[in-house]
């Protein structure tokens, strides 16, 4: 007979995971004061992304000058991680060439573990060296169900530019 005392529970995850590491000030700042939200007049690339599981939504518009991101608009609604990531991304890719945007996207996805890599993407001794503010999002990696929130804007931007 199965009794509570005979059940072997899975070992609880040790409580070293820090919520503070995920909800950093810079993330909450971007969540509450999202950058680059104004709709664009001239739109060269656009895409909408959403996460049907949690309802996060993001709409991206890009205006290109040659192959350079001349202007970007990122609008949406959702959790702090999805919206802060979108806002920080808009800052990071503004003024960059499409090739540079692809590189930043690749680096970000590697940092988040969305793309497998052995590379040490983020140098612990030089915080902010590679991705700037975006490195604040690496705390999300410890919350696997939330990684897709951080990734939503990036996948949507890729979709817009690859169309």
């Amino acid at each position: 007979m199965l009794t509570p005392s005979s059940v072997r529970w899975p070992t609880p995850r040790s409580y070293s995971v820090s919520l503070e590491e995920m909800y950093r000030e810079v993330i909450l700042d971007h969540y509450r004061n999202p950058r680059n939200r104004d709709p664009l007049d001239k739109i060269d690339a656009t895409a909408e992304g959403n996460n049907p599981l949690c309802g996060d939504e993001v709409t991206i518009e890009v205006s290109l000058n040659g192959d350079t991101v001349d202007a970007i608009s990122v609008r949406g609604q959702g959790c702090s991680i999805s919206q802060a990531s979108a806002s920080m991304m808009s800052k990071a890719v503004l003024g960059k060439t499409e090739k540079e945007v692809a590189e930043i996207t690749d680096t970000f996805k590697k940092m988040m573990g969305v793309i497998d890599t052995d590379e040490n993407v983020v140098d612990d001794d030089r915080p902010g060296a590679t991705l700037g503010d975006l490195e604040a999002l690496q705390g999300v990696r410890k919350f696997p169900v939330r990684i897709k929130c951080a990734d939503l804007a990036w996948t949507t931007l890729e979709e817009a530019l690859n169309r």
Binding site: V17, S80, I81, R146
Partner: peptide, 14 residues
């Protein structure tokens, strides 16, 4: 307040 429910669920889960 302005805390998204998804964030709330993560925090409460911890």
């Amino acid at each position: 307040a302005d805390i998204h429910p998804h964030d709330l669920a993560t925090i409460l889960d911890q």
